[in-house]
Design a protein around this nucleic acid. Structure first.
Lengths: 258, 258
DNA sequence: CGTGAACTTGAGATTTCTCAAGCGGGGTGG
DNA sequence: CCACCCCGCTTGAGAAATCTCAAGTTCACG
């Protein structure tokens, strides 16, 4: 249950055995199932505990008064959804995108472990700064990239982040987003998102149906998204992706039409 | 020299005398002057020290290959510009907006102080999460608000943040941004920014000339920007702003035409 | 007085949005 | 087992926001 969190914390640098067991000791309760669409973390102050996403995918979002929604990130298994809640009130919510499992970690335990194990504190800081970097990158997209580049960029990012938690299978990742989700992430209307998506499909860059993203032309997708993964700070995980770089043509074709 | 940093760290909760002197001990070197436009922090790995902005205003930004720029925030005095550098490489740069003074804090001292003084660590976490919240709020703007609302919102935000470091004078703040800066912050073209700015002026909401922002109609500005300051997590500082809420009509007029 | 940066204006081009309607497939109640 | 329904996807067409290009203005400064 803790393995994704460990993987996550160690994705920027290894922890010692003592640190690993300290992290493992953070989780005491059982995993709790969450139905898709449920709000897991609400705006406002929280009881004295964090929520750890054990399984499934989630979305971090803010609603505006008249129903507009901005999605800010897509947490993956092993992410602590409200580390912010340890230090201050939450100013946004997190909802389950798919069926999820979550478990709790007390704020006190987080603070104690950070103090007793500086390596764990460092790992949490890196986790937080990486998420910050993702926010900035989305800002760059919404401020300075076309709809097409934004969509391609988000797909690249999700392929990398999901691959880091073992969800990449050949050139496919589970990406259960509706076109409405994409639109609310990227500041677009659903209609426009739909049209851009069609063009990416027609050009043989991706397939995106049934909650699954298939990368048909990784180089083309990176190029369309002006994608440079430096901001994700996932150095070693990147090499894993190179398998994706040059699938054989016939496999590509089978995947595209499957 | 350290006072803005202390003020900044304590803006979400007081520090004990011991913690305050520990923070004061972080700064050992002299302040160094920086000319406007200079890049203070560069993308990539840093020498083992952080940069503390002592005086002046800065901008956090990223350049795209073809010259497009996205500005991500405007650090104010007392901000540590590259706390991220303690834990990982910088993925963006920070440049001086005005003439600035900076000083350095060694990464080792930051880590040591965080470990020895949990209250300081907490304050740094709150600082980091508050900046994250600002990034998210800008995402909301660029994704889901009109040009007019984005501009008004940025003005509201800067009024509050600058007031928190003592730069609000009656209803004016020094805001030495060009229309190009505004555009690159909000994802707009300069031409459009110019036109929206004109309409805000014509309607008597603000004056914005000569590097100075004058708030003529605070309620109107907040409304135009759909501004809710909750995300800034500056509870006590907010009350200070209420003075701004209802300036007397004749003072408004003098200020508007000054 | 010349120069450059920032600001302003006009006009046409694009991107993206909104509204409105139709389609399709999976799930459910009869 | 089938009809219906809902949600998500798709399409069309006109409207709106915003962009680009290009030229002019203002003002501080040397």
């Amino acid at each position: 249950m803790i393995s994704h969190l460990l993987q996550n914390l160690q994705s920027h640098g290894a922890l010692s055995p003592a640190e690993r067991s300290a992290v493992a000791a953070l989780v005491t309760g059982p995993a709790r199932p969450i139905r898709p669409g449920t709000e897991i973390v609400c705006k406002g102050s929280q009881p004295g505990r964090c929520v750890l996403l054990v399984k499934g995918q989630a979305l971090r979002f803010r609603m505006l008064d008249d129903g507009r929604r901005q999605i800010m990130s897509y947490p993956v298994p092993g992410d602590i959804l409200d580390l912010q809640g340890v230090f201050m009130e939450m100013d946004h919510g997190v909802a389950a995108l798919t069926a999820c499992e979550v478990t709790h970690i007390s704020h006190a335990a987080v603070e104690r472990t950070m103090h007793d194990h500086p390596g764990v504190a460092r790992a949490l800081w890196r986790m937080a700064f990486t998420e910050s970097a993702i926010f900035r990158e989305w800002m760059v997209g919404m401020g300075r990239r076309t709809a097409r580049a934004r969509i391609a960029h988000l797909f690249c990012e999700q392929v990398l982040r999901l691959s880091a938690v073992g969800l990449l299978n050949r050139n496919r990742v589970p990406l259960p987003l509706t076109q409405q989700h994409l639109s609310d992430s990227l500041g677009l209307s659903v209609v426009h998102t739909n049209r851009v998506l069609q063009s990416l499909r027609k050009e043989g860059v991706i397939s995106f149906r049934g909650g699954q993203l298939i990368v048909i032309d990784w180089e083309g997708l990176k190029k369309a998204g002006e994608f440079d993964p430096a901001y994700l700070h996932m150095d070693e995980a990147l090499t894993r992706l190179e398998a994706l770089a040059t699938p054989t043509p016939d496999r590509v074709l089978r995947m595209a039409t499957a």
